[in-house]
Simulated assay, not measured.
Amino acid sequence: MNVNRDVVHERLRLMRDLLTDLDEIGQVTVERLGADRIIRHAIERIVTQLVDLSVSINSHIVAATRGEVPRTYRESFGALAAVGAISTDLAQELAPSAGLRNVLTHEYVTIDLSIVARAVPLAHTGFRQYVVEVARYLLAG
C-alpha cells in the first residue's frame, strides 16, 4: 500500500485550520475556561480534532509503509517516528495527548480544566511542529 499524499495533505490542512482557530481564541486560562463554556467547548473540540487527525495520519502512513496499524492512539506517534516521519522527541511530546483526547471525548471523569488549559500551548507548538515534519516527510518521499 502506498501513502495517499492527497489524503494526508488534506488532513494536514485541516490541522492548520484548527491551529489558526486556536490562535484566534487567544490566551486560555483555567479561569477563562470555567467562565466561558463556549470557549471551553471550542478548545476541547479543537484539541480532540487535532489528536484525531494526527492519529489518522499516523495510522495511514504506518500502515502504508510497514503493513501494520498501531494498536492505540498513543502508540501511533511512536510508530510514526519509527518510520521517520516525525522526530522521536515530538512523538514523545504528543503521545500523552491521546489520553486527554479520550477523557474529553468519553468524559470518563470530571474534566480538570487546568489540564485542558495546559494542553493549549502543546497544541500550539507540538501540533504545529507535527504538521511541518509530516509535510517534510511527504516531500522527501
Results as ranks from 00 to 15, higher is better:
R71T: 02
I86L: 05
V103E: 15
T110W: 12
A85N: 08
L53T: 12
D6P: 01
P121N: 06
G84P: 08
L80Y: 02
G34P: 03
V109S: 11
I43E: 00
P96D: 07
P121L: 05
V30H: 07
R11M: 11
G67R: 07
V69W: 14
R128T: 12
D89R: 10
V83G: 13
V30W: 12
R136W: 08
R128H: 08
G78R: 12
L33V: 06
I86R: 14
I43H: 01
I46W: 03
V134D: 03
F77M: 10
L80A: 12
E24D: 15
V132R: 15
L53W: 08
A81M: 04
A64R: 13
T110K: 10
S114L: 13
V3Y: 09
T72P: 04
P70R: 14
M15H: 10
R11D: 15
I57N: 10
R74M: 11
E93Q: 06
L14T: 15
A123I: 00
V131Q: 08
A91I: 05
D17I: 13
T29M: 05
G34C: 07
R101P: 03
I39Y: 00
R16W: 00
P70H: 11
E24N: 14
E93F: 00
T65C: 10
E24A: 09
L14I: 08
L19T: 06
S114M: 12
R128D: 13
I115R: 09
V134K: 01
R40I: 01
L104Y: 00
Y130Q: 06
R16F: 02
N4E: 15
I38G: 02
T88Q: 14
L18M: 09
L139S: 09
H9L: 15
V28D: 07
S97Q: 12
D21Y: 02
T105Q: 09
T88G: 09
P70L: 02
L94S: 08
R11F: 06
G141H: 13
L18P: 04
R37Q: 10
H106T: 08
D112N: 15
I39G: 00
A35Y: 00
S97F: 04
L94E: 07
D6F: 12
V116K: 00
D52W: 01
E44H: 09
L53A: 12
I46N: 00
E68L: 07
Q129Y: 00
D17L: 10
V132C: 09
L19E: 08
G126W: 00
R16C: 06
H60E: 14
R32G: 01
N4Q: 11
L80G: 09
N102V: 01
Y73T: 01
L12Y: 09
F77Y: 15
V103N: 11
R136A: 15
L113E: 13
I38R: 07
E133N: 05
T88I: 15
R45S: 04
T20A: 11
S54A: 11
T125Q: 12
Q27E: 12
L94F: 04
R136S: 12
R71N: 04
I61D: 11
L104P: 03
L113C: 02
M15Y: 02
G78L: 14
V62W: 11
Y108K: 14
S114W: 06
A135S: 15
D36I: 14
V47G: 04
R11Y: 13
D23V: 05
V8S: 01
R45V: 01
H106R: 06
D21Q: 06
H124K: 13
T88S: 14
G141N: 11
R45C: 06
V69N: 13
T105E: 06
V132M: 11
D52V: 07
T29E: 08
L33T: 00
A123F: 00
L33W: 02
